[in-house]
């Protein structure tokens, strides 16, 4: 705001000084200064609109400003929308268990990984007798196993220490009815019985051992799956195959 200082006489220029000044400095424009154009009205309006939006956003998505609320839509200032009813559907639970524990090898598509992990879709082990399938999941597998004529040589861990009966039953039901599979639902009591029967087994099973298990359905297993036209379980009359055709 102060008036610009006048150049003092001692800094006055002489012809000698001129030679020392670089050309770029002589042709330079003045140091930058400010114009005084006003702030446009539309910008002010836009700022007000943004401020209004911000207030609304914070109101609705602040989670009540609590340190233990992580879902933005959970609480808006003391108003808690009721949580949606929890899925009791075994297929939904089974899907959750499957993606969390099985999908890293067998993939969400149920197709496995070629050459490494066998597919579950259209697999005779999955659609076949639930006694064998339950034994595999409870104890794990080691060594070669043939699925659809392809030999896979890998390890599957035992799940009996990690998953509960109802979780195993749900995931077996899920894999037996997903990707076009159409075998019966497995019940938790069947898994409980199998778990008791295999209680002392601490190493994974091998293919011959699995095939030596009597091919039977576990107690509580429904005989068939819903058919593709949407008939509920038990109405369709497809019998589960008894021996895996290898």
């Amino acid at each position: 705001m102060d008036p610009e200082k006048k150049p003092s006489p001692e800094r006055g220029a002489s012809e000698m000084d001129v030679a020392k000044v670089h050309g770029a400095l002589l042709r330079e424009k003045q140091e930058p200064c400010d114009g005084m154009a006003p702030i446009p009205l539309w910008l002010m309006t836009a700022i007000l609109a943004l401020a209004f939006w911000s207030g609304g956003y914070l109101f609705f998505y602040s989670g009540g400003f609590r340190g233990d609320v992580f879902n933005e839509s959970q609480i808006a200032w003391g108003y808690a929308p009721t949580a949606p009813g929890k899925a009791k559907d075994p297929l939904a639970i089974g899907k959750r268990v499957y993606v969390a524990n099985c999908a890293s090898c067998h993939q969400v598509t149920g197709l496995g990984q070629p050459g490494t992990y066998p597919p579950l879709a259209d697999s005779d082990y999955v659609n076949g007798p639930s006694s064998r399938l339950a034994a595999i999941v409870l104890n794990g597998i080691t060594g070669p196993i043939k699925v659809h004529g392809v030999v896979y040589n890998n390890n599957m861990p035992a799940w009996k220490g990690l998953l509960k009966d109802d979780q195993i039953a749900a995931v077996l039901t899920y894999i037996r009815q997903e990707w076009g599979n159409k075998a019966g639902a497995v019940a938790p009591e069947g898994i409980a019985a199998k778990r008791a029967a295999w209680a002392t087994r601490s190493t994974p099973l091998t293919e011959p051992e699995i095939l030596a298990i009597p091919p039977e359905e576990l107690p509580g297993t429904s005989s068939a799956a819903p058919s593709s036209d949407g008939t509920p379980p038990g109405k369709a009359a497809t019998a589960a195959p008894v021996t895996p055709s290898r």
């Binding site: 705001m1 102060d2 008036p3 610009e4 006048k6 150049p7 800094r11 006055g12 220029a13 000084d17 001129v18 020392k20 000044v21 670089h22 400095l25 002589l26 330079e28 424009k29 003045q30 140091e31 930058p32 200064c33 400010d34 005084m36």
Partner: peptide, 28 residues
Amino acid sequence: MTSPSSSSSPKGPKAALADALDRAAIDA
């Protein structure tokens, strides 16, 4: 509101040269 730190044209060639010399000193 403000008085810009203008240097060249309004004050004549002598002042402009003085400003250029100031700038030269700053740059050096």
